[in-house]
């Protein structure tokens, strides 16, 4: 049985008072940030979630933890339906399901010391008998993530981005969770610091037997650490499969263009690249049919009116596109 099973999960935001609304002057509109998503995560694996900014990755991660209440659908964690838990049971469940946030600057309370921030989950879940035990546990986890003992009484603004990310990791780990949503934990960091944090997260996973949903917009990061990959576009998963398959044999035109757009150091000089025209459509006015049709070089009439179903294209590998049967790849088209 999968550790996490998500079925038909949706999170719709009322655009009425939202930022988009003010910017576009639109009224009474709904943003389908996450729309009817199915996925599973096995115990001990890393499922990578990739997609462009605004496609709904963070919303999905938060809806799974009910940090944002889902609009519909179910989330099963270790056999329990998270979506119907009462507040007390949800609180208990949160000990086992944690999140590390994208922005190491915004997610830490500036008025609390590191010891207080990291110790809070122990307090919330009654995991320390007294102050002394709490402090001991905080010191141990802080040391484990690479903070120095002298630093735990300092405030977040006294730390660099990489160190703040370590604080966030310590806070997520202190309650000994089994599952962690890593929401772009390295995106705001320089490459050398990014490598430090990735190495730390992988070590911790091995030591503690953790399971990650790892969100990133960086294919190199996902390709390096994920076991399976889900590719998201405008609130939906358009392709999902083992990482080797997604990297070597991407089947959805969006995945293919994403792969071809990544600049690589091993690749000098210009190379064949799939050109997508246009920007991401406004989430307030999503395209009909396949949501990718406004940018897809392979779009045909059916794409504009009918939403493609999710099909199995290989072992554990699925994709949603009308033209899968033709086994086209955009790179061939680009060279043709």
């Amino acid at each position: 049985m999968s550790l996490l099973k998500v079925e038909g999960l949706s999170k719709h935001y009322q655009g009425k008072h939202g930022l988009f609304d003010r910017l576009t002057g639109a009224r009474h509109t709904v943003v389908r940030a996450v729309n009817e998503i199915d996925l599973t995560v096995e115990k001990g694996e890393i499922l990578g979630l990739i997609g462009e900014s605004g496609c709904g990755k963070s919303t999905l991660g938060r809806a799974i933890l009910r940090l944002h209440e889902p609009t519909s659908g179910t989330v099963n964690f270790d056999g329990a339906n998270v979506t119907t838990l009462d507040p007390a049971a949800l609180k208990a469940m949160r000990r086992r399901m944690q999140i590390i946030f994208q922005d190491p600057y915004a997610c830490l309370n500036p008025r609390r010391t590191v010891a207080e921030i990291v110790g809070l989950p122990l307090k919330l879940h009654g995991l320390a008998a007294n102050e002394a035990e709490q402090r001991e546990k905080v010191a141990a986890i802080c040391a484990r993530v690479g903070l120095k003992p002298g630093q735990i009484d300092r405030y977040p603004h006294q730390f660099s981005g990489g160190q703040r990310q370590r604080i966030g990791i310590a806070r997520a780990l202190i309650s000994h969770p089994e599952f962690i949503v890593c929401d772009e934990p390295v995106s705001a960091l320089d490459v050398s610091i990014q490598a430090q944090i990735i190495a730390l997260l992988l070590e911790l996973k091995r030591e503690m037997g953790l399971t990650y949903l790892f969100i990133s917009h960086d294919i190199s990061v996902i390709g390096y650490l994920a076991d399976r990959v889900a590719v998201m576009y405008m609130g939906q998963i358009v392709e999902m499969g083992p990482v080797e398959q997604i990297l070597a044999n991407p089947r959805h035109p969006y995945t293919q263009s994403l792969m071809s757009a990544v600049p690589e150091v091993d690749h000098s000089g210009p190379r064949k690249r799939i050109k997508l025209s246009g920007d991401l459509p406004s989430p307030l006015r999503p395209p009909t049919g396949c949501k990718f049709h406004t940018r897809c070089p392979l779009a045909v009439d059916a794409c504009r009116s009918q939403q493609p179903d999710i099909e199995t294209v290989g072992p554990g590998h699925t994709a949603a596109c009308h033209r899968l049967a033709e086994k086209l790849t955009l790179l061939d088209e680009a060279s043709a």
Binding site: S192, S220, G223, Y224, V265
Partner: peptide, 11 residues
């Protein structure tokens, strides 16, 4: 810097 870049080839 170059060794810090995660690469699928280094899985």
């Amino acid at each position: 810097l170059l060794a810090s870049i995660p690469r699928p080839a280094l899985r």
